[in-house]
Design a protein around this nucleic acid. Structure first.
Lengths: 152, 152
DNA sequence: CGGTATCCGAATGGATACTG
DNA sequence: CAGTATCCATTCGGATACCG
């Protein structure tokens, strides 16, 4: 049923329900556990290979399925469907079917989806602001690792 | 070599190098591709199961390896090592070895690591502010799905 | 104490073929 | 056009055993 076997999150064995909790206060580990778990779970949706990309593209307006497929470049039909389903499930994306022939399906950001862009953009700007530092750190780390490998 | 076979990111076949790009402007799809790919890549580090949790715990001060292992709860030694290595590689965490007997290793957030907390907290607050909406959306989605399954 | 090495099941995700 | 279903390779990640 549904879509093959693996689904980004949909169809997960109904464990891992979201619990309430406080934001990560960086103080009490217990607080961090309860709050961060929740945050992590949503973050992993945002952090997956395609989600933000699609959210950012939909930010400029609604798109049809194959339109998205062309725009995203490299995404398989499977992953596009799966990603859109999960975004829809979380209430970030609205799916609208127009039962014409051929059928027409539009995907648009919900208000919630739009509001997500604010913190995601902030994170995006942090990345862009620090990408050079990160790249340099990686290079130095990898070099030092190779040094050790050469020596033994 | 290194750590078994699978590493969160370390040891990846040296393809996927980070490229420069603009922040996701939600305008030109090409811009979105180049910028968001980079953002995605770092986001997937932040979005993985353990990274933020560890960053948030380290925010309150340096910790030793087994101390972290106890605090994180549920993490395997393998994943703790892997996650810490990658955080170190990205320059977010500083690893300090004190060659005593028994050996002592401390992990601390770098200034870069601390600066990451700002946008991550913002995202965390967005999640906490909207978690109810998301939960409700999921419930409605899953219910409607079951309805359709029952009917055929 | 702070890791590494190895084994192996589970999840991820691309390619392809088929459908209303 | 907008998906589903199936197959299959790759990757992830826990459990366990061992090491300096």
């Amino acid at each position: 049923m549904s879509l093959g076997h693996s689904n980004v999150t949909i169809e997960a064995p109904d464990s891992g329900e979201i619990g309430q909790g406080e934001p990560c206060a960086a103080l009490d580990p217990v607080q961090i556990q309860s709050g961060c778990r929740t945050v992590s779970e949503v973050l992993s949706r945002v952090g997956d290979k395609w989600s933000i990309l699609i959210v950012m593209i939909l930010a400029s307006g609604p798109r049809r399925f194959n339109e998205l497929k062309r725009l995203v470049d490299g995404i398989s039909q499977r992953m596009l469907t799966l990603t859109l389903r999960n975004l829809e499930r979380d209430g970030l994306v609205q799916r609208t079917v127009t039962p014409s022939i051929p059928p027409r399906v539009d995907y648009a950001l919900t208000p919630l989806g739009h509001s997500l862009r604010v913190p995601v953009s902030a994170l995006g700007e942090w990345v862009m602001a620090n990408i050079t530092t990160i790249k340099d750190a990686r290079e130095r780390f990898d070099e030092e690792l190779q040094q050790r490998d050469r020596l033994g």
